[in-house]
Design a protein around this nucleic acid. Structure first.
Length: 421
RNA sequence: GUGGCUAUGGUGAAGCGGUUAACACUUACGACUGUGACUCGUACAUACGUGGGUUCAAUUCCCACUAGCCACCCCA
């Protein structure tokens, strides 16, 4: 095959797009119910934005970004995540002036140059939501509750919510030192990766999957036990509100984050059904990010979920739209009448299909069956002269006689319309 | 960036040195010329990822490349 898609860039074919639309529609409904508005931001930004927000030393910025110089000599990057662009827009348009609290959601493609594997591609899609301008843990809890509700709405019991707190610039450094001295004594029993992480990102060791490391860090100090007073109270507040709203969660004191901007509350929706890509959605609080990007001191919290992963969890489910009526014709002059009827029915909201190429009646009926049309009708000379036709309900073969007018046909077809449509 | 596995039609696959490259699904047409589903029949890979090599002979063995998948790293 001469021309193929780029590695890690996938087509979403018609048999999958229904599932994607189901996810997107549900997200919009749940988020808008919670008072979130959609924001649409560019998929490319100045590279500087991501370096400043995600963190220069993170893997994303160091080796995974699609960065290039455009024809005007600007260094630009295909967005590897959504929060940075949304915060840039918030600051650029001073959205916080009119309303100090912003609740925004976005959806669209993100790009990361990684080695593709299950549930992880170079172009992938996220739906995310952000609340800015609220310090109170009530915001954290509402966001988490909304996320859980979303998963319930699309029909998934999994994934499960896990939460943690990463503290703030006040208490994290001290904890980091505590952890370092703990690990220092056990360096020998850690895996090669973790030995490297000891200097680069010691918190990550808590998240290591190697058995030896899990054993060695069994009694490791947890950030949760080392939070400063303010962070501790905040986290207690989050938990209290989660309980009040009946949002189920568990603590995961070993959860860490890949982006530098996170503070305090962090969370993940995890599943065990997706191999190593256990996080279906993740996020946290980023109280320092907006000021770091040149905006005012405004706190924020948000999450992003990976649509490919959600779609994978939903992959057993069918999402197809079927025609209400298939019009078969005998050929010749009836096709004009059939086409006019189809046009009228389509305009009144009835999903109609008819044969395009003058195939045999048998072929047409087979097609009606394959498309899972609810009704079929054959129009030939008899029907043209009588002005009536037999509408056959495909599921059980029951036939209803009706006049060949848009209104009459719509009545027949609609009365069988399931309330789900 | 590092490993492992795999590459046969629209799809799922059998074949593992000489075959008309099975079988099933899908698709098309027909048996049933004004009615689908079930059944039956017919048709549908000059072709086995690409390039080399071994051999009288390679889809089958070897090498390289490329692609895909899975895992690591990291992440949603």
């Amino acid at each position: 095959m001469a021309l193929t898609a780029i590695k890690g860039f996938n087509d979403i074919l018609p048999d999958e797009s229904g599932r994607w639309q189901h996810i997107e529609k549900s997200a919009r409904r749940v988020f808008e119910l919670n008072g979130f508005s959609e924001i649409r931001v560019p998929i490319m930004e100045k590279t500087e934005l991501f370096r400043r927000s995600i963190g220069d030393a993170t893997d994303i910025v160091e080796k995974e970004m699609y960065t290039f110089t455009d024809k005007g000599e600007n260094c630009v990057t295909l967005r590897p995540e959504g929060t940075a662009g949304v915060m840039r827009a918030l600051i650029e348009h001073k959205l916080y002036v009119q309303d100090p609290v912003a609740k925004l959601y976005y959806l669209g493609p993100m790009f990361r140059y990684e080695r593709p594997q299950k549930g992880r591609y170079r172009q992938f899609h996220q739906i995310g939501a952000e609340i800015t301008g609220v310090h109170d843990p009530l915001a954290d809890a509402q966001l988490l509750n909304m996320l859980s509700t979303f998963f319930r709405e699309i029909g998934l019991d999994e994934p499960a919510l896990q939460i943690n707190s990463l503290g703030c610039p006040e208490c994290r450094p001290a904890y980091r030192n505590t952890l370092l001295s703990f690990l220092d004594g056990r360096l020998d029993s850690l895996c090669e990766d973790c030995k490297r992480r000891f200097t680069t990102n010691p918190l990550r060791t808590l998240d290591c999957k190697v058995a030896g490391c899990i054993e060695a860090t069994a009694g490791a100090p947890a950030m949760l036990d080392h939070l400063c007073r303010a962070c501790g109270e905040h986290f207690d507040g989050v938990r209290r509100y989660l309980d009040l709203s009946g949002t189920r969660y568990s603590l995961n004191t070993r959860m860490v984050r890949g982006l530098d901007y996170y503070t305090r509350t962090t969370f993940e929706m995890v599943t065990c059904q997706l191999g190593s890509q256990s996080a279906v959605a993740a996020g946290g609080r980023y109280d320092g990010l907006i000021s770091q990007l040149g905006g005012p001191e405004i706190p924020g919290i948000g999450f992003a979920m990976g649509l490919e992963r959600v779609a994978l969890l939903l992959s057993q489910r069918e999402f197809v739209t079927t025609p209400d009526l298939f019009i078969a014709t005998m050929g010749g002059g009836e096709r004009d009448l059939a086409f006019r009827l189809m046009d009228g029915l389509l305009k009144s909201g009835v999903r109609v299909e008819m044969d395009y190429e003058g195939k045999s009646l048998k072929s047409q009926m087979r097609r009606a069956d394959k498309l899972k049309a609810v009704y079929s009708v054959v129009i030939g000379q008899n029907e043209v002269s009588s002005g009536r036709a037999a509408f056959k309900r495909m599921a059980d073969g029951v036939v209803t006689d009706a006049a060949l007018s848009v209104d009459e046909i719509a009545k027949v077809v609609k009365c069988f319309d399931s309330p789900l449509k």
